[in-house]
């Protein structure tokens, strides 16, 4: 399945998708008097790359926190593969196949790169304290996990660093490690919170390539990003948030022309670099 999946999809907020893996209804999160997230309806297409954009403070990260169980909803429901997810703790959400990364990278500094990777694998028998005592019980699984981790490390060009502490990696390498580690958890949907922030441009290209490959392998990718070049490059579908709500959906081409989106960016975020938004010169 490729971008064709969106052929028949109307470019409007809350439009139904052909093959929905994640859907959200009436999702509200309030912090005191502030409504951080208020999403009527949103469907995420399976096996596609969906970009979530919006000005600073639009509620993108809060939205991620809510659907991955890192924050509790004030109201609303959401389903992953038709199964309700509200109130499910973060670790169970991850086990179900909805795995996230963080805006501020969470490399586990004093663990080696390979240990970081091995941690990601789910269903490890050696994570039970009693079975942990006897190596033969978990040794074989550990070797399999390590082999898989090494393969991923090679793919993400981190193999040479495998025995270094994660804390010794550069910012960009940590982003790579975090993404690779999330893949160790065998996700169906991976939510990347600003995967390119702080990554040098040379590395960005290879990171983007990795994200595209994830789709080829059957994964669904949802990512938050500020860099519009990145969004244009990899996303099949773009969802725009502003002030907690979804204000537009569509292909990146249609989004650039959307008046609500232009208003949201120019009206609320003066610090945004205008050059990064596709403006249609005919309309101005």
């Amino acid at each position: 399945m490729t971008t064709d999946a969106f052929d028949q999809v109307e470019p409007r907020p809350g439009s139904p998708k052909r093959d929905t893996i994640l859907s959200v209804d009436g999702l509200v999160r309030r912090f005191g008097g502030i409504t951080a997230v208020d999403v009527d309806h949103l469907e995420i297409q399976a096996n596609a790359i969906t970009g979530l954009i919006g000005p600073n403070g639009a509620g993108k990260t809060t939205f991620f926190n809510l659907i991955t169980g890192f924050d509790e909803v004030t109201a609303g429901t959401f389903q992953f593969k038709g199964e309700p997810l509200e109130g499910v703790p973060a670790y169970k959400v991850a086990r179900k196949g909805l795995v996230r990364t963080f805006q501020l990278t969470k490399a586990l500094s004093k663990l080696s790169v390979i240990e970081n990777m091995k941690l990601g694998a789910v269903g490890q028998v050696g994570e039970n304290p009693f079975k942990a005592l006897i190596r033969p019980i978990w040794g074989n699984q550990e070797r399999e996990i390590e082999a898989r981790a090494d393969e991923l490390l090679k793919r993400f060009k981190l193999y040479e660093k495998r025995d270094d502490y994660a804390g010794e990696l550069s910012g960009g390498q940590r982003k790579l490690l975090e993404m690779a580690r999330a893949l160790m958890a065998d996700p169906e949907v991976i939510c990347l919170d600003e995967p390119m922030a702080g990554v040098n441009p040379a590395l960005t290209q290879s990171l983007l390539q990795h994200v595209k490959e994830l789709k080829d392998e059957g994964l669904t990718v949802v990512f938050v990003e500020h860099d519009m070049d990145v969004v244009r490059d990899i996303s099949d579908w773009v969802v725009v948030m502003a002030e907690g709500s979804i204000i537009a959906e569509g292909s990146h081409a249609s989004i650039g022309k959307n008046q609500a989106v232009i208003d949201a960016y120019l009206g609320t975020a003066h610090e945004i670099d205008l050059g990064t938004i596709e403006l249609d010169p005919e309309k101005h």
Binding site: T68, F70, P89, A90, Y91, K92, A94, R95, V99, R100, T101, F102, K106, A107, L108, S109, K110, L111, E115, N116, K118, L119, G120, V122, E127, E178, R181, A182, M184, A185
Partner: peptide, 18 residues
């Protein structure tokens, strides 16, 4: 390994299903 990872950053460990 899980314990040491929790020492470093427990949210990261949570996000990996522990």
């Amino acid at each position: 390994r899980v314990l040491k990872a929790i020492r470093e950053d427990e949210d990261a460990v949570r996000s990996l299903g522990k």
